[in-house]
């Protein structure tokens, strides 16, 4: 409990925190915008792939730098919520970019990152696949935003109410 997260873990956490929150706001603004739509889509795609790469690095880093244990006094229900929400976050961080990449593939869009740099399709061109993946992308995005809000609330609970060192173990700069 007294041990902070490893520096690389903290760097990955806060970098991804900024990118993912930006991504969620860009995503939700994009799907209604007219004049900014293209600008936002052009950021959304490479940013999503960047998040996919970072979450893969983060999962590997987790094996080498395991997170500090939760405080001994924390009740079982809170411990369960903490662990479950973290694995949910990991799952969504992987699933959203992969579903996004897959749905663009199924729609027959090129997956342009920057200039001529683009990714290959990961699924065949299929209207039915696109029709299933496009709404899934939205549902998962809302789930990620909800999980992020819970994570933010819980982090602030640790920082301000429980004051048990959990927040400081990540927010040590």
């Amino acid at each position: 409990m007294s041990r902070p997260f490893a520096p690389l873990s903290r760097l990955l956490h806060w970098t991804m925190a900024v990118l993912i929150v930006a991504m969620l706001f860009i995503g939700i603004a994009m799907v209604s915008s007219l004049s900014d739509y293209h600008r936002l889509v052009a950021i959304h795609k490479p940013l999503g792939i960047a998040i996919l790469v970072l979450v893969a690095i983060r999962l590997v880093n987790r094996l080498f730098n395991p997170p500090p244990p939760l405080p001994n006094g924390m009740p079982g229900l809170l411990r369960f919520a903490a662990h479950a929400s973290h694995w949910l976050l990991y799952g969504l961080m992987f699933a959203l970019p992969l579903v996004g990449w897959g749905m663009l593939s199924a729609a027959g869009y090129p997956i342009v990152l920057l200039g001529a740099w683009h990714l290959p399709p990961i699924l065949p061109h299929s209207d039915a696949l696109y029709a299933a993946l496009r709404p899934l992308h939205t549902v998962l995005a809302f789930a990620l935003f909800a999980t992020f809000l819970a994570h933010l609330g819980a982090a602030l609970m640790h920082a301000l109410v429980f004051r048990d060192g959990v927040f400081r173990s990540m927010a040590k700069f």
Binding site: S35, Y37, A107
Partner: peptide
Amino acid sequence: SARSAAYAVSFTRRAR
């Protein structure tokens, strides 16, 4: 940008 956005909505609706 408006065409791009509106085409995407049309495309997604008809796909489903």
